[in-house]
Design a protein around this nucleic acid. Structure first.
Lengths: 192, 192
DNA sequence: GTTGCCATGTAAATGGTTACATGATTGG
DNA sequence: CCAATCATGTAACCATTTACATGGCAAC
């Protein structure tokens, strides 16, 4: 009687199942692959993977076998039928299109009105700098051919195109702000 | 001696300080404003605001006064000088351009290769549907004139433009997938 | 022989989400 | 009097992050 059946997988579990399906069999290999490819568009935790692997094992979604390298113990993971079903169930689930967005630069922009008009432009400049740095990072990785699988490459290309779009949006926003003198005094300063 | 000085604000604290600076004086009003505007681009928790308001008070970043409506107790918050400094410090901080991206549709796309070729297109279709729904939602709100402050409007416009961009990217990706027969067999199925 | 990588894990803290609990006021 | 809205909070849970701890193996 599995602890957590097919019903609800958390994000760590999803990444783990996907990685194992792709053939990354050990915790360490998964960790490395997360660093290599997923980090770009998914802030995945790395500290939680060993506990979660155990939970998945207990839940019967993955099976483990000992596969030592010399004297170093090593666990090799494979998907069970239930695990594969959970993974494809998640991937083909058409009910929940969770599009959450959590962008600190945008949150800052939302509050830029509380700054002095002269300082407001800096918030957008910052935001543009962040996108620019991301453009550099992703395009460098793409040029190095780091993304073998076509779907990995697609997601990296998405990251690149999105960062370029964001950079351009910021440049345009800067122009608009300058044209309007960084916008009057929308600040509703609190009066005690 | 404040519990948490200017140094590090968590995200809830940031939203709270910004909201108070804008003149949303009570926990309830802040909650309502989060629902109204911030939800679109910032998945902010609403359950954590009262405890956090107390922490901010203890830390000397906001001051509170009782402001009852009839027999209903009510707390009115104002920024202290330290609070205003913390807020502007965050807004003008040029060290940390945290651009985290956490998109479940993209994560699914990354693993689409483990599905049968025929099913892969569905992952992108899903993603497009999510963006389309977002486009509808944000443009409806913009047309209702829900965003008074120019910076609120800018963030909403960002949300709209981004969703449109994402929708179009997906449409293009769908075309590419179809043109290539949803891409061969990149699946590295695990062998036990 | 020591640096760096492979490999697995634990502990503590923080943060965020949901659900619950309470009660006053206003308007129909 | 009932429903909706204003208003404040707590408790429990889950997820995430960081830091730490351990040890083998390979290469230089």
């Amino acid at each position: 009687m599995p602890n957590r059946p097919t019903e609800q997988l958390n994000n760590t579990a999803r990444v783990l199942l996907g990685m194992i399906a792709e053939g990354h069999a050990t915790g360490y290999a998964i960790k490395a692959e997360i660093e290599r490819s997923t980090r770009l568009y998914w802030g995945a935790s790395v500290g939680g993977i060993y506990p979660e692997l155990r939970r998945l094992t207990d839940a019967g979604l993955v099976s483990v076998c000992d596969d030592p390298r010399g004297g170093t113990r090593r666990h090799s993971y494979t998907l069970t039928d239930a695990g594969r079903q959970a993974l494809t169930g998640w991937l083909t689930d058409c009910s929940e299109p969770v599009l959450e967005m959590r962008s600190e630069p945008l949150l800052r922009l939302r509050f830029a009105g509380v700054l002095e008009p002269a300082e407001r432009l800096g918030v957008v400049r910052q935001m543009r700098a962040a996108y620019e740095a991301r453009v550099e990072e992703v395009s460098a990785r793409l040029e190095l051919g780091q993304f073998d699988d076509p779907f990995h490459r697609m997601t990296a290309e998405f990251g690149l195109a999105y960062s370029e779009w964001g950079r351009d949006w910021c440049a345009d926003a800067e122009r608009r702000l300058l044209a309007e003198g960084c916008l009057g005094q929308p600040v509703a300063t609190t009066k005690a």
